[in-house]
């Protein structure tokens, strides 16, 4: 993997995946920085690790009981206040499915 060379096209594609529009003028710089970061991170290549020796943490994820944790409406006003576009207490978003 230390041979990986990032191209401006790669950066553009990653941008698309991450919902970012990387400006044409920045693509080459990001690609060059990527190469230097990946070369550094590529040190991991030298590392031989024991097979399936994942040292699992003693910490376990836990789920709360499936019940209403607080009274409905407690947070509504504060959250709705943050909406960029709203109708009453509803968040307005653009239509996702188009018919063309």
């Amino acid at each position: 993997m230390s041979n990986t060379k990032a191209t401006p096209e790669d950066v553009k594609r990653l941008g698309t995946l991450a919902r970012l529009d990387v400006a044409e003028g920045d693509l080459a710089r990001f690609a060059a920085e990527f190469d230097s970061i990946l070369a550094y991170v590529g040190k991991l290549d030298e590392l031989t690790l024991p097979k399936s020796d994942r040292n699992l943490s003693v910490v376990r994820n836990v789920l709360r009981a499936d019940e209403t944790p607080y009274e409905s409406g407690t947070w509504t006003e504060r959250i709705v206040e943050q909406f960029p576009v709203k109708e009453g207490n509803s968040l307005s978003v653009k239509k996702i499915i188009s018919h063309d």
Binding site: L14, L17, F34, I37, V41, L44, L47, R54, N55, L56
Partner: peptide, 30 residues
């Protein structure tokens, strides 16, 4: 922030996740 989001997207992408993310996660245990 953009640099790290792109880097994170890369190390998690199909074809690279084993070489980068899974290996790093395993090294973390070591």
């Amino acid at each position: 922030t953009i640099r790290r989001i792109l880097l994170g997207t890369f190390v998690l992408s199909s074809g690279y996740i084993d070489a980068y993310y899974r290996k790093a996660d395993q090294a973390r245990g070591v």
